[in-house]
Design a protein around this nucleic acid. Structure first.
Lengths: 211, 211
DNA sequence: TTGTATCATGAACGCGCGTTCTAAGTCAAG
DNA sequence: CTTGACTTAGAACGCGCGTTCATGATACAA
C-alpha cells in the first residue's frame, strides 16, 4: 500500500508523532509511541514503524534513539535568506558579497516550495516607489538569485548603465535588440538596441509584502 | 552572561546542534556533541548544556535521550495557511467557511514574523489584473485575516455592493465619508458617502508573489 | 486441510545515553 | 601564597530504548 491506505493504528502513530514533534521538538521513542497509542509491545510499534517507513511516510535511523523523522516537514524545507540591503532605482543592486551592507544578520525565512532549491538566495528591501510599474512598492522585499545565464521571460533586476538606473523587468532577447517588459500589463515595454548597456544583476524569485 | 557572551566551546556546541537538527530532524546526544566538538568527557558537554540552558539558548528535558531543543526555532514558528480560493474583482471574497472552495488541502507556509500571531488566517490567489492599482497582479497570493473591526489605514478587501466589485484599498474613515486609497501612490482615491455600500471582507496581512 | 502473508504479543538481550562522582587545571581576588 | 569560582577530565552507575526471537491469531488462496 504505497499510498494513504494505512491502518487505523498506523494513522494513530503518525498523528502522535506529528503532535509529539511539534510539542517537544524531538521525536518520541518506540515505548512512548506505544503508550500513547495503546500498544503494550515495543515490537509491534517497531513493526508498524518499519511499515510506515516502507510506505514512505517517515524515515528511520537504525540503532539510534528517537531516530525517526516524518517524510514531510523534511529538514531544509525552511530557508533563511539574508537581507543584504536595499534596492533603489538610482543605484546598482547590492550583491551579497558586498562588505556588510547590513551589519546585523537580518533575514527572512521562507519555505522551499516558494523559493525553490538553491542556497545562493538573497533578499533586498525596496526603497521608494520607483518600481510600481513592476507592481513592487516601497518596503516590499524581493528575493533574488544571482543569475549567470538569463532566459527569456525571466523577471530580472537590470542596471542600465546609460540611464544609471536599476529596474525590475521581464527580459526578452528579440534578435538584435532586448525588450524589457514591465510586469504591469498596462505599461509599455522598453526596447534596447545596444545590449552592452544592460547588466543583469539577478533574477527575482519571489516578492513578499507585509502590510 | 544572559546574552551572547558565550565561550567558543559553547558557541561551537550551539552551532553543531543547529546543523545536526537541520540534517537529521532530531537533536544529537551528549556523546555526539562531544565527539563533534572535540570533547572527550560527557560530563563536560552536560555542564555546558546546562550553562546554555541557564542562559536561555536552549531547553532540556531531564532523563530523556536527545531531550533538548533550541530556544529559537520554537515550534509554531511556522504557520500553514489554507488556500481557500481565488479572488476576482467581480465577486465577493470567498471566506474560509465557504463549502470547499478548493477541495484539496492546498496551502502556503509562512513564518510567524511575517504574518504575526493568530490562527484564523487564510490565503487567496488573485485571478486577473484588476488589482494592479494595489500593486497586486495575476497569480499573487494575498494572506488575509477576517477583520471584525477596521482601523484607519488598514489595507482591506472591500466588496462594493453598488458596483458589485471587490477591491483592495487602504481604508480611512473621514467623518461622514469613507476614503478608499489605492496602494499605488500615483492613483487617486475613491470617496464613498454612503458607508452602507461597502462591506469589509478582511484585512490584508501580506502578499506573496512567486515568479 | 495446508500453505503464505499480515498483524499482534511478550520477553529478553545489549548497547545507548543521561547522570553523578571524584579529581584536577586555570585564573582573578584577597 | 591561599581561596574560591569556573571549567575540563575520566570513569562508573543504571535505566532508556532499539532490536530480535518465539509464539499466535486472522485472513485469503490453493
Amino acid at each position: 500500500m504505497p499510498k494513504d491506505r494505512l491502518s487505523g493504528r498506523q494513522q494513530a502513530i503518525l498523528e502522535f508523532i506529528t503532535g509529539f514533534l511539534e510539542e517537544n521538538g524531538y521525536p518520541p521513542t518506540i515505548r512512548e509511541i506505544g503508550k500513547a497509542c495503546g500498544i503494550t509491545s515495543t515490537s509491534v510499534v517497531n513493526y508498524n514503524l518499519n511499515k510506515l517507513e516502507r510506505d514512505g511516510h517517515l524515515s528511520r535511523d537504525r540503532e539510534v534513539s528517537r531516530g525517526l523523522r516524518l517524510a514531510d516537514a523534511l529538514p531544509g524545507n525552511l530557508v533563511r535568506i539574508p537581507l543584504v540591503g536595499r534596492i533603489v532605482a538610482s543605484e546598482p543592486v547590492p550583491m551579497p558579497s558586498d562588505p556588510a551592507v547590513l551589519g546585523e544578520d537580518k533575514g527572512i525565512e521562507l519555505t522551499r516550495d516558494i523559493v525553490g532549491v538553491g542556497d545562493d538566495l538573497f533578499a533586498l528591501q525596496v526603497k521608494g516607489d520607483s518600481m510600481v510599474d513592476a507592481m513592487i512598492g516601497d518596503g516590499d522585499i524581493v528575493i533574488m538569485r544571482p543569475h549567470p545565464n538569463v532566459q527569456n521571460g525571466d523577471l530580472v533586476a537590470v542596471w542600465l548603465t546609460d540611464r544609471e538606473e536599476t529596474t525590475l523587468k521581464r527580459i526578452y532577447m528579440e534578435g538584435p535588440l532586448v525588450r524589457l517588459q514591465p510586469a504591469n500589463p498596462t505599461m509599455q515595454p522598453i526596447y534596447i538596441d545596444d545590449p552592452s548597456v544592460i547588466q543583469v544583476q539577478g533574477r527575482v524569485v519571489a516578492v513578499v509584502r507585509q502590510t
